[in-house]
Amino acid sequence: MGNALRFLYGNCCKPTTSGDSQSLGPHGVPSSSVGVSALAHDLVHFENTSQVPEGLSKHVVSSKKTQANWYRKLVDAWKEAKPPPRTPEEAARLVILTLKRHHKVDVEGLLIFYGLPLPHTLVEVAVQHPATSLPHGVQFEMHTLPVDAKAVADGDTITVYVSVADPRESSCVPGNVHAAAAHRSEARARRNYEEADAFHKQIIDAGYRMIPFENNEILAKKYRLRLRGIDAPESKMPYGQEAKMELTKIVQGKSLRVLVYGEDRYHRSVADIYCNNIFVQEYMLKKGLAWHYAAYDKRPELESWEKQARGKRVGLWASKNPEKPWEWRKDRREAH
């Protein structure tokens, strides 16, 4: 059994016993667990029993023998995926790619069975492979620790942390931060947590933080990132919360590749951001949850991705005349 499948099975979709009050979904797991965890549950079950889930035949036309062939392929694909699917979109893409030679009705039926997004609702984003040299204008590159969901402020701003073990960071850590980290460790060993918290506050005030990571703690530098070239709706604007939720869904729990071009007046690093080699700005524009910020970025591809979303009337483009965030901000500044 693959580690990714075992993790999801153990944490998300343990079999429901007869004493459970929660209702079961059509595939034999709690109805609240449909999606990625339900698919993982059924793949684990198939690997152990060679049995496909009951009820699937109501959604597809192929025989049980053909269904078993699908699950055999999906088990292998899931194990080979690096990283394994964690969001409904990632799971749907794995299913579509693995079963691309099978009948469209069957593939869509399988996705519907698990409540996963259908092909026409998925945003197609090209996978970017890191170049051997940095693009013109990049000041530096960094790779973050996994992003916490609470670190996403809105649809174009994220707070991230970079380990001081990174060669670029290691030479810049102030001596008092190193000292506070050492004193905090000693205080925690003595179980003097009040003293340890005081040292951690010193670390945080200096722009660093101790980040839990793989049963350990890492001293890391804090960066606030502004996604270069796009402007998402503000949180109080229509689609502001949708933009924040979509960006959170993309980056949560992931390590990001960040190319920093400069700093804005709010001391945020203006950057291109890649998550699993997906260009995040492209994804947000194609989802219709951001504008191309043409006043500050003239890249034609950003303009093209916004036009695609406009043409499909997805996201904020479902409205006839959505208010631009820079105009929204200007109106509120003038009102005050």
Rank of each mutant, 00 (worst) to 15 (best):
R310K: 13
L285N: 06
K307N: 10
P325V: 02
A318P: 00
R313T: 07
N321M: 14
L316P: 05
R313C: 05
K298P: 13
K298I: 01
W317Q: 06
L316R: 06
A294W: 00
P325Y: 02
Y293S: 06
P322S: 00
W317T: 06
K330Y: 08
W291T: 02
M284F: 03
K286S: 09
K298Q: 15
K307R: 11
E327Y: 00
E303F: 15
A294Q: 12
Q308H: 12
Y283M: 14
W305S: 02
G315T: 05
P300A: 11
K298G: 12
E323K: 15
G311K: 08
W317L: 04
K320P: 00
R299N: 14
K286G: 07
Y283V: 07
K324N: 06
S304R: 15
N321E: 12
A295T: 12
L289Q: 04
Y296D: 09
K287D: 01
G311N: 14
K324T: 08
P322R: 00
E323T: 11
G288M: 03
E303G: 15
M284G: 07
K312Y: 08
K307T: 08
G311H: 10
P322Y: 02
A294N: 09
K330D: 06
A295L: 15
S319T: 12
K286D: 09
W291K: 01
R299Q: 10
G315C: 09
K287T: 03
A294S: 08
P322C: 00
L289H: 04
K298R: 08
A318V: 12
E301G: 11
E306I: 06
W305L: 01
L316W: 05
P300H: 12
W326C: 03
K320A: 10
A309S: 11
E306L: 09
A318F: 06
L289V: 05
P300T: 13
N321C: 05
E323A: 12
K312A: 06
E306R: 12
K287A: 12
P322H: 01
W305E: 02
L289D: 02
H292E: 03
G315K: 05
H292F: 06
K330R: 01
P322M: 02
R310Y: 10
E306N: 11
R299E: 15
